[in-house]
Write a protein that binds this DNA or RNA. Structure first.
Lengths: 132, 132
DNA sequence: CTGTGACAGTTACCATTGGTTACTCAGGCA
DNA sequence: TGCCTGAGTAACCAATGGTAACTGTCACAG
């Protein structure tokens, strides 16, 4: 087998691993929830308030997935009313720097993205009008 | 208004901006496609081959969104057969380091995640069996 | 002793998104 | 005449996400 082919296979395999990982964490809420756990353990309701717009169902699903993947730990305190705390594990905490970097990117570039989107939509509308 | 409230409002607003950004880039394919554009401009078919498992439709949709948001540029060469090249813009390139860091994280921790998932599913199955 | 509230969910249902397959367009070539 | 390529669209179905209402347990108010 040629060197070239081996490299390509290897790259495709890496791509598959990365794809599988991003399939899990690359959904609408996961990155946000992990980011919100930056400051330490949080209980369900607090987390729900800190992640703007998430519903109860989506939050439970998201933390369940994160727990399954070993990125957060879930601790139940048998009190009344019940208390459940979620905390990043070591693996989860290793993911924090890139997530925070992406959050910084979002804050720094949100206006540029917004502007680009407006321009794109406008020229698309003009093209559509020209076709008429 | 108390200082505390102002801080909380500010945090919620930041959270919203980050959420909106992650809503765009945090889907199944976007991060992967951006990552694959690391090495320079790529044409459609090559990109499709390098992103394992993506369909034509999903690739077009993903690059269209990225173009709309100003993260990639799309250049059409009027040849037969047609040639279209996608390239990261400056804004897009700024997103590259966190994405590559996440890819590294995925490669470094995929086995740990896999193991955690197996353990979780097993204990869930045991619990279900115990209930019977 | 009936009602209300908090917390951490779950269930049922509908809307939106993602995936698969087939088709298009324009020209070159057998 | 028919088939090939590259870069997509269109039509259709499966999977995922979102909304609203319900659950269970105990404390406390009236």
């Amino acid at each position: 087998m040629a060197m070239r082919e081996m490299q390509e296979m290897c790259e495709a395999q890496r791509g598959t691993i990365v794809r599988e990982a991003l399939e899990r964490i690359g959904d609408k809420w996961t990155l946000l929830v992990v980011g919100m756990l930056e400051t330490g353990p949080q209980r369900f309701t607090v987390l729900r308030q800190r992640v703007p717009g998430i519903s109860q169902r989506m939050l439970t699903r998201t933390v369940r997935h994160l727990e399954r993947d070993g990125l957060v730990s879930r601790t139940v305190y048998s009190e009344i009313p019940p208390r459940v705390e979620y905390e990043l594990t070591d693996v989860g905490r290793e993911l924090l720097p890139p997530i925070l970097a992406m959050a910084d990117w979002a804050l720094a570039n949100s206006d540029r993205v917004e502007e680009s989107r407006r321009a794109y939509d406008e020229s698309a509308a003009q093209l559509a009008a020209a076709k008429q």
